[in-house]
Computed example of a mutant assay.
Amino acid sequence: MMRLFSIEWLKLSKSRYFKWMMGLWLIAFIAVPFGFNEAISWIAEQGAELYTNLGFDASMLPIFSFTDLWHNLTYVYKLMTLLLSIIVIVNVGQEWEEKTIRQNIIDGMSRTEYFISKEILLLTLTLLSTALLIAMGLTVGYMLSSDTSWSSVTGHMDFVYGYALHVFLQLNLAMLFINVFRKVGLTILLFLVYLYVLVPTFWGINLWNESEVHTYLPVTISWDVVPVPFGKYIFQLTPDHVDPQTLALGAVWAVILLFVNNLLTTKRDLR
């Protein structure tokens, strides 16, 4: 396992795109909560008149209270998974385009080992993003939350599990796309169209027909595992915890994607 990780890391450490994309992702990851807090403070300052008339102050919203923090952060960070997905597409796509996968096989690596090495990359990105999420959540929470009791800190951390599942699912979906199409530029375009055009269109058609088929799609499961949290601030009903059924469906889709990616990697013609 460590040998496969070392081989994959050797490839990535020499890749300029990986350093730039990971650097951009890391900067955004760190900047988001502090930038959001500054925005809330600015809104609070600009809203002095609103506070005077209605008794409302934007800084009163418990966005960074531990009771809300994990849900809010996981949802916002979920929006940045696309950067990690592009990293996976480029990484796997270069193997197909430059025929290095064939060279790996010639050099003695089995197809199964190659597949495992890519899944190690996906798992590493998932664990890294989850660990950073926890670190940022604890840092921001202890700085800005009024209640730092153990029960408050850990009471809603199930959203962290939901976030980890979301990342792993979307990265495997990105790997599926590049394994099917094999061309980096084309795959990125089709992946974006799928995520932001085809899936929302299908959602809209299903909602109009009062159908729930779309709720079982892997992308829907991936997104629903951490639902939109901000409705609670305008008195909309919002889940306080991750839905266990959604987690279970996500785990099923993860197994399915692993199986299909394994087939495409180990059985498909390498030409």
Rank of each mutant, 00 (worst) to 15 (best):
G23V: 10
L24N: 12
L24K: 15
L24R: 11
W25P: 00
W25R: 00
I27K: 04
A28M: 14
F29K: 01
F29V: 02
F29A: 05
F29H: 04
A31M: 13
A31Q: 07
V32E: 00
P33F: 03
P33S: 13
P33R: 05
F34N: 02
G35I: 02
N37T: 14
A39K: 07
I40H: 08
I40Y: 11
S41L: 13
I43T: 10
E45I: 02
Q46T: 14
Q46P: 06
Q46E: 09
G47K: 14
G47M: 03
G47H: 05
G47N: 07
A48G: 11
E49M: 12
E49Y: 06
L50E: 15
Y51H: 10
Y51A: 11
Y51E: 06
T52G: 13
N53G: 14
L54H: 07
L54Q: 10
G55M: 06
G55H: 13
S59D: 14
M60D: 10
M60C: 15
M60N: 15
L61W: 14
L61M: 14
L61A: 15
L61E: 08
P62V: 01
P62W: 01
I63D: 01
I63T: 05
F64T: 02
F64P: 00
F64L: 11
F64H: 03
S65P: 11
T67A: 12
T67G: 08
T67I: 04
T67P: 13
D68E: 10
D68L: 11
W70T: 04
H71V: 01
L73C: 04
T74Q: 02
T74S: 06
T74R: 00
T74F: 03
Y75S: 04
L79K: 15
L79P: 00
L79H: 10
M80D: 03
M80T: 13
T81C: 03
T81D: 02
T81A: 13
L82S: 06
L82K: 01
L82N: 03
